[in-house]
Amino acid sequence: MWPDGSQPARLPLFSDPVGFAMANALSRRAFLAGVATLPLMRPADAGDSLTFEQLYDKITVLGLSFSDKVKALAGKTVSIRGFMAPPLKAEAKFFVLTEIPMSICPFCDSDSDWPSNIVVVYIDDKTTFLPPSKLIEVTGTLEVGSWTDPETGFVSQLRLVHSSFETV
């Protein structure tokens, strides 16, 4: 695991002036208040939670197999904690949630590639993005199985759709 516990001392401002943007530069309390005024960002009804470790019961060279817990939660509201990878575009309808922070951007760097146990998160509205070093909790409806994003061709095995997220 990455020693991610420490909070960044210099928090750069976000580009979006009303979203998570300013909030991050403010105190924790102000930050939470800011979230409360933005219904979009509020987590959906708390469902079951999943960890990256619980996603697959077997990780092998010949493929991964979904855990029974994942299969049982398909179609249900689920929360997963992870890190937001650098996005494909500054504004996009989905982002990739990873177990450890991605310092590199496989979307933009031909030298790097995704880990195999990613979760793709779809949000209903476009959003700006968080630094990949920040732990977030995403809540959404779990979709299980191979699916190709029609706009980008990005193939995913696990998705959270109609999602919302907050920093932890």
């Binding site: 990780i59 195999s116 199985g145 191979s146 095995q157």
Partner: peptide
Amino acid sequence: KDVPGSKR
């Protein structure tokens, strides 16, 4: 591509 873990 339908095998979890595939990147095809």
